[in-house]
Structures are given as structure tokens and as C-alpha cells.
Amino acid sequence: MKFFQRYAKNYGALIGLGILIVVAIVALAAPLLFPVSPWQSVGDPLLAPSEDPAFPLGTDMLGRDIAAGLAYGARVSLLIGLISTAVAVVIGVSIGALAGYYGGRIDDVLMRFTEFFQTIPAFAMAIVLVAIFNPSITSITLAIAIVSWPPVARLVRGEFLSLRSREFVQAAVVIGQSGPRIMFTQILPNVISPIIVTASLMVATAILTESSLSFLGLGDRNMMSWGFMIGAARTMLREAWWMSVFPGVAILLTVLAINLIGEGLNDAMNPHLRGRKD
């Protein structure tokens, strides 16, 4: 349990974990907390916060409950953040591992491919992908995954490349282990911690990207999301500040929490680096 002790030394990381747990609980419990669909009009339109105790965060111009929107929006954010990151990590690790381990031609081809995806503007590409394939939770998740795997591939490739020439990997070659076995049992375990740290930060970025897409109207029409709520609030900025402020704060807190967790993981997994920093 040394790992958790090191993690717990970082107050920011603990706070982040706390916030994320609250967000996750709200997301899971959304149907219990708000049995009525967040798209349903439940009260008078444009109720300010605490104007009606039933709607502590107010209602929008169609009388929909902002609080219910936030709870259901958490589901979308976390779901898309986690799944798109998982997909991106799988793509990135596969490409990076092959390129770094085998080197030469394979590396050249795979890295040109990666550089290509890294150069083209990620958000613009996500917009085009979602627009062309019609906005749905699948197309959004895949589009985010497709624009976010290159950094993972480069990281993993770099690690594989440097570990490949490390003596313990050479030793594994010398004792007669096969290539795939070396990649999985010798190198990969040594790359896991940077991958986890990167992945945690990617979840945060993915949530930001998802909210930006749905802000532009590229969200799934069947699911309430924070970005959509802010997009809808745009025209009501003067009349109803609460419509845009609360979803924004929700995004900010969630993303902040995940970033704090990522930094905490980084410090806990690389104690030497931390020592040098202080």
C-alpha cells in the first residue's frame, strides 16, 4: 500500500479524487435522483436558482430542470471520456509498441502515419468526422478516440525504443525469448505507469472535447450533455446566467479533478521525479 500512501501525500490529488467520486455517484444515481427525463419540461420556464425550492439550480427557457440536466450530463461526459480514452490507448499502445520494438521500416511507416494524425488540427477533424457520420454517442466517442491516440503512440514508441536497447531486454533476447513475449512480459510492464498517467489526463481532455462538440450542436440528440446546455444558454446569456454558469462549473470541476488525479498518479508512480522537483 506504499503507492496509496505516496498518492495521499498530495492533497490536490485527494481533493480531485473526492470530486470525481461525487460526480460519478451523481452520474450513476441520476435516474433515481431525477426520475423524469431531463428533456421534459417540469416547471415554469426561466426560474432563477432557489426561486422555487424544487429547482435549486433553476430551470431553462423550456422549464427543464438544470440540476437534472447536470446529473444526466455527467453520465455522458464520464462515459465518452472513459470509452474514447480506452479506444485511443489501445490504438496508441499497439502502434507505438510495434514501431518502437521493431524499428526500421515498420517504425518509419507507423510514425509517418502518427505524425500525420498529430499534425492535422484535432478539433477540426473531430468536427468533420462527427458531422459527416451524424452525431451519435458512437460517432462522438470514435471521433475523439481517432484524434487523441497519437500522443499515446509517440509516448509508447519512445519508451519501447529506449527500453528495447536496455540491457535487461537484450538479456531476454540472449536467453532466447521470442519478440512478442519480450514485448508483453519484459517491456510493457515497465511502460504501464506512464500510460496510466497519460490516459488519466486524456480522459480530462476528452471530456473537454465532448463538451465543445455538443456546444457546437454536435451532441447526441438523445442524451443531455453539459456542452449542449451551455450551447442552449448562449442566446439567454443576459436573461438567465444560471443556464450557462452551472454546466460550465460542472465541466471545470470534473476536468480539474481528473487533472489533479493524473498529477497525483504521476507523482506517486515516479517518486524519484518528485524528489527532484521539490
Partner: peptide, 20 residues
Amino acid sequence: RPLRRHIQMIFQDPFASLNP
């Protein structure tokens, strides 16, 4: 690969030559 066992190596850096 099957012949490798006959020719073995001892490496330079005792810190890098063992998988942590």
C-alpha cells in the same frame, strides 16, 4: 533462438540489466 542458450552474455550495468 534454440542455439542461444549455448552463448550467453553478462552485461555492463547492474542497474539496467535486470528487469525492475
